[in-house]
Design a protein around this nucleic acid. Structure first.
Lengths: 220, 220
DNA sequence: ACGACCGTCAATGTATACATTAGAGAGATG
DNA sequence: CATCTCTCTAATGTATACATTGACGGTCGT
């Protein structure tokens, strides 16, 4: 009962976490032997993990034989949002059309409550991020009949989490983000696709601006 | 000079082609030993190829240890278009904003000419598909600064080609498709994002309808 | 001193051997 | 006759050995 999953899966999860959490910094070379030793497995599962990271875009190839942790800068964020805009908008539209209204209604109220909490207690960040996670899960559930879109969204989210760690939201931004998320959830709960799309656009616009402000500030 | 690429790459390309072209039918089991023997390499590169096919969505897992060529039916097509709609629309918008106008202007005229040709010479199918390929390449070129969107599009196109082989366009449809494509190209060449998006929507709507008609006809 | 060229070797790419397990099929049982 | 279990095998998952190549450091030339 020690290894419920395969070694390749564990290697992948470990590396992926290390990259997303910044433990393996962008630009770090990924060597099979080194990681195999670190993770306590042979090169074979590590190799498989590297292939998946490459397909995720978490690693990139430089030259024919060297793999690096992929870089992520302000320009990547903009490029990421070019895709996110398309996917989130469509996801919101579909969720409003065919999603289960109940979870979104519940999330809307909980997000509103979180807005109040965040105003007073700044330790509620974790709760808010957990709520966003639930929101994403609710979106995924609504996309049961759109597996391709759902898969694209899930691939995207890994990168977005990386960005989130890079550009830590300030409290004021978090407050507005919660309100924006609540607006999206409510529009979906009301089965109003147009409003859901509009609210999503608003959220993405603000989120991108906030991130860019942050990155510009930390670069300068 | 016999192997310019790695064995894993060749195995992947071969399997991918076989799946897209229908030589490996949906539902066919993919066994490492069998494919290794067929392709004349060891299991290792085949294994790597399988991993990539899985991440492409060209193969799917049934149970913990069996891989099948992924199925594709009318419902998959609808799901595929849920994603395609989002991506193509955004791509058209961005191409109209920042793309090189010249290639699109050239493509527009060539597509119009193809429309005339298709009306008389039905052997011009190949030419038309080649033009669409060039159009896609021009879109990709316009997305140089949006690599995430471009990557998502490229992943999607493999599946679309599979659909195209599944539901062969009839001549009438091809004619309209060429005209619709020309309209998109012209809108992009004119740097008119809104029109490009509208033309894209029109094209996708018609394409989806045509495919569904075809599939319903062949199923019945 | 700076750049191009080249040999070394360490890391990758591939094959194979070993360990493990899922899945097909025989047999038993209701 | 269907279903369930159990076995057994053949395939996968992993490790390792072998082959191959390109990244790095040194040398040479200018």
């Amino acid at each position: 009962m020690s290894t419920p999953t395969t070694a390749a899966d564990r290697a992948y999860s470990a590396l992926r976490s290390d990259i997303v959490e910044g433990m393996l910094a962008p630009g770090t070379p990924l060597a099979e032997v080194e990681q195999a030793a670190r993770l306590g497995v042979s090169r074979t599962p590590v190799r498989e993990a590297f292939a998946r990271l490459l397909s995720d875009g978490l690693a990139e190839q430089r030259g024919p034989r060297t793999l690096l942790v992929s870089s992520i800068d302000a320009d990547d964020v903009r490029a990421l949002f070019d895709l996110r805009w398309a996917l989130d908008e469509q996801a919101a539209r579909i969720a409003a059309h065919r999603g289960d209204t109940l979870p979104f209604a519940a999330l809307a109220t909980r997000l509103d409550r979180a807005t109040e909490l965040l105003a007073t207690d700044d330790a509620a960040r974790t709760d808010y991020y957990a709520l966003v996670g639930e929101f994403d899960a609710a979106i995924d559930a609504s996309l049961e009949t759109s597996p391709y879109l759902r898969a694209a969204l899930q691939r995207l989210r890994v990168h977005l989490e990386r960005v989130r760690r890079l550009a830590h939201d300030d409290d004021a931004r978090l407050l507005r983000a919660a309100a924006e998320h609540a607006a999206i959830a409510r529009a979906i709960a009301d089965r109003d696709p147009e409003r859901a799309v509009a609210a999503t656009r608003l959220h993405l616009h603000d989120a991108l601006q906030s991130i860019h402000r942050h990155l510009k500030a930390s670069t300068a």
